[in-house]
Amino acid sequence: MKSLLHVNKVRVLSPEGNFLSPEISFDLGEGEVLLLKGENGSGKSSFLKTLLGLHKPFTGNFNFEVPLQDVQYLPQLGNLHFHLPLTLRDVLNSEPASNGLLKNLDLNKKWNTASGGERQKVLLTSALAKKPRLLVLDEPFNHVDQESGHILEEALSFFLNEHPQSSLILVSHRPLLSVWKNLRSLEIR
């Protein structure tokens, strides 16, 4: 199994040098799903941001075996009120996919008035349309009702089955409902 990401003793630091996460090490291979678990404040999101170059101070090292262009990232869905009047179709930026995520969705709705579930479905569709080798999702089921969460999970599972060379790193507090192949968990504390 080809390795996509090698992480060696990475520890996230604050700009002042304080530790924001414990030391984290793992290897992620093709087709694997890595579920990062841990309590609030354990540093899961900061760790993902560090891997993706969005957070700088850290110790240890890591290495992507795929170009960053083949990585897609969805951060935690906050309550982003965007200044420009983007519609869901604008955010989608690609032809609607046939994975059912966009079923019954009004793509002409403005981002600022869309629900958490609608936003997350569009963002995930857009990310999957790029056929990433590595998908990094931070709490994708937050602000999403149970039914929408299940649809998101099914779409992810379907994508990984269709693209066995792609992998997923997932932070989630909610237990996964679908049956995932090659699923590993890593507790961060």
Binding site: G53, L54, L68, V71, Y73, P75, G78, L80, F82, D90
Partner: peptide, 18 residues
């Protein structure tokens, strides 16, 4: 225009990694 607007969206959403 559209591409730059989406880039602005990613920057505001802290998800611009490319």
């Amino acid at each position: 225009w559209r591409e730059l607007s989406l880039r602005s969206f990613q920057l505001a959403n802290h998800s611009a990694i490319h």
